[in-house]
């Protein structure tokens, strides 16, 4: 066999992404995506939210299946703890986005990853949401993501993967930068 030896892989199809980048440069309208979620209040602080449909490449698209998520509050808040808190879901999104970015950038830079784990911590002062002190914000006061990465690369190269991933992360951008949020009722 005369096949080209594959030295490494992180399982990311970088060729497809590079192709998309080229296609979106030529046809910017195809790059307009809309992500959607549908939520239903269940009971107490429990809400179920599902995602399936989205818009992209100029037409309606669909995930392979419906993905459903329960959010609730823990028992110390006298809730039933049916799911993670919505605030924790933000951390889930951040971890998923940054880690996918690391794998993608590593693939592009031909760096073999062996393991990528992250511990995320995000302090929050509940005096904010409970309205105890109006100077305290509702949201996280900060977010710290600690990555432990084993890869065939130097320390600086690994640091560069993580930095580049942040630079190109939709969730990182959404959290770090202001976004207009429109919440409509019965419209």
């Amino acid at each position: 066999m005369n096949n080209v030896t594959v030295d490494f892989t992180n399982g990311v199809n970088v060729e497809a992404l590079l192709g998309a980048r080229e296609a979106f440069t030529a046809a910017p309208e195809a790059a307009q995506f809309v992500w959607r979620a549908q939520s239903t209040w269940k009971k107490g602080t429990h809400t179920q939210t599902s995602v399936q449909k989205f818009f992209g490449l100029g037409q309606e698209q669909s995930h392979r299946q419906v993905f459903s998520y329960d959010t609730d509050h823990p028992e110390i808040f006298a809730s039933e703890d049916i799911g993670s808190t919505p605030t924790e879901m933000v951390l889930v999104g951040l971890a998923g986005c940054l880690t996918a970015g690391i794998a993608t950038v590593a693939e592009h830079r031909k760096i073999q990853l062996h393991s990528v784990t992250a511990a995320i911590e995000a302090p929050i002062n509940l005096q904010g949401i409970l309205g105890v002190d109006s100077d305290i914000r509702n949201g996280f006061s900060s977010i710290t993501v600690k990555y432990t990465i084993d890869a065939d690369a130097s320390e600086d190269e690994i640091a560069a993967l993580v930095a580049q991933s942040q630079k190109r992360s939709a969730v990182f951008d959404t959290i770090t930068n202001p976004t207009n949020v429109h919440v409509l009722v019965n419209s």
């Binding site: 640091a159 560069a160 930095a163 580049q164 942040q166 630079k167 990182f172 951008d173 959290i175 770090t176 930068n177």
Partner: peptide
Amino acid sequence: SGSLKNVCML
């Protein structure tokens, strides 16, 4: 932006 640390790291 909350990305100051990262742009400096880059």
